[in-house]
Design a protein around this nucleic acid. Sequence first.
RNA 1: CGCGGGGUAGAGCAGCCAGGUAGCUCACCAGGCUCAUAACCUGGGGGUCACACGUUCAAAUCGUGUCCCCGCAACCA
Length: 504
Amino acid sequence: MTKKFYLTTPIYYVNDKPHIGHAYTTILADVLSRFHRNLGDEVLFLTGLDEHGQKVLQAAQARNMTPQDHCDDLAPRFTQLWEKLEISNDDFIRTTQERHKKVVQAVLQMVYDKGDIYQSEYEGWYSVAEERFITETEKDSGEFRDVKLLKERNWFFKMSKYQQALIDHINAHPEYIQPEHRKNEILGFLRQPLTDLCISRPKSRMGWGIEIPFDNEYVTYVWFDALINYITAPGYLSDDKKFNYWWPASLHLIGKDILTTHSVYWSTMLFSLGLPLPKTIFAHGWWLIGDSKMSKSVGNVVNPLDLVDEFGVDPVRYFLMREMVPGQDASFTMDAFIKRYNSDLANDFGNLLNRVSGLIPKYFNAIVPAPGSFTAEDKVVINIAESLKDKVPALVENLKVSEAIEETMQLVRAVNKYMEQQAPWKLAKENLPVAGRVLYVASEALRITAVHLSAVMPAKTKIVLDVLGAQGSTVNWGELKPGTKLGIHDALFPRITLPPCGEG
RNA sequence: CGCGGGGUAGAGCAGCCAGGUAGCUCACCAGGCUCAUAACCUGGGGGUCACACGUUCAAAUCGUGUCCCCGCAACCA
C-alpha cells in the first residue's frame, strides 16, 4: 500500500549560524523521510532558506555586499552541512528564487482581490538602534535602547476573519497540532480575539523583500514570504498536477518557538487561499546544552559539525534521535553522548556484528550457514524481530522515533543474550549444523536490525548490510541467504575510551 | 483567579487518557562466560510514583487543594 508523504522543515534564516537546533529538526525530518521510503511510501522532503528581511540587509551592508550576494555566500553553510549530515531532501527552496517570488506575489494578489488585505496604521514599539519593531515582551525586558512608539502605514491581513474556522478545524482534527499540550496552548491563545496581521514594510525603511504587487512602495514582511515556501515547492500555481498530488502536506515539522506562526498565521492564510490545511503540524522541543538554554547570542552553541568530525555522522544522528523525546526538551552533554555511543552502538550493536562476523569465518569459511528448522529458543528471537515490523512503523507514524529506536535495540540485546545462551563457539566443536543454525538466526536478526536502523544511520547500517550481502533487503524474516559469502569490515563503532579532547 | 504542560530509584525516560503486584536504559555491587570493540550474560541493592485530602474492594493512574519547575501570552522564526 503505497502512500505519499510530504514533509517540511522550517526554512532557516540564512543569517543564522547553523546550530544543533537546525540540525536536529532537519535530521528528524530526514529520518522520517527514510523510514517512509523504506515502507515504500512516496516522499517529498523539503527544506530551505529564508533570505529576506532586516538582518540580512544589515549584514550585507556591513560587508559591503548586495543582499543577494550575501545570501549566496551564506547558503552553502547550510547546504554543505546537510550533505555532511546525510540529509536526503528532495528539494531545497530559497525565498529569493524566482519560482518563489512569483508565487508570493500571486498569492498576495489573490488574497488582496478577495478583500482579505487592507491598509491601516501599524503602531508599535520601534527600536531606533535595531531599526525594527520590537515586541511588548522585548520592550519590557529593558534590553533595547532608543525605543519609541511609532506609527506607520502598512498592509494588513484579515486573520481575525478565519479565527472561528481555525478553532473548528483544530477541534475537528485532533491530530492537526501536536503534541497535544501544544494544541491546548493554541486553543487557549485562540480564546482571545485575533488581531489582524501586519504583512508589509515600507521600502523606505526596509527594502530587502518581495515587492507587494499592488503597492510598489512596500515589500511583504516575513509571513507572506517564508510560509508560502511550503506551497511554492510542490508547484502551487506553476504545476497543478504536481501540486494537487502533494498538497496538503503530511507534516510540518517545526520547533516550538514558531508554533503560533504556523498554526495560526499559516492556517488562516490557507483558509483565505481556499487551500486545505496540512494534516499535522508537529512542534518539537529544544536542546539544552548541559543545563542552559541554547542561545545564539551567548554563543554557547555546540556545532554539530565538530561532533560529526570527531565521531562520524551516524552516531550523532543516533544520539539526537534516541535521546530526545519529541515534544519535550532534551539536554546535550558530552557525557551522555559518550555513554549512549558506547553502550548502544559499540557494546551492543557494533560488538554483535563482530561476534557474528568473527564466528562465521572461523567455523563456516565465511559462508552464511543454512539454519534448518528453528527451535523454541530461535523463535523467541524471530518473534521479536517479526514484531518490529508493526511496532516500528506505528511508533514512527506517531513521531515516537526514540521509542522506535529503543524497540529495535531490544532485538539487539535479545540476540546478545541468545548468543550467550546458545554459545555457538562451543557448539561448533560438538555439533556444527546446530552452531550454523544459531549463527544464521543471529545474523538474520542483525540484518533486520540494520534495515530498521537504516533510516537513522544510513552509512553504518549499509556497512552491516554489505557484510551480510543483503543490500536492499527488507524487514521480513528469512531474507538472509544461506551460502552468502561474508564481507569484511572494520570495527563499526570503536569504543570511545578517553574523554573527548574537544577543548584541548 | 489569563491559558497550558509537568514533578516516578543516583541520572534520563515509559506507564496515567481505557484504576488492579512499579517498568526500561545508563550508573552501582556480586557472580558467570570468554566468540567479541576490557565487550557479552545472570543475579542484586536502590522508589511511601512532589505533598494532603477524597472517590473506590483497589489509585502513579480518577477528583479537589497546596508547593515547586516549565511553556504560551502574537507579529519574535
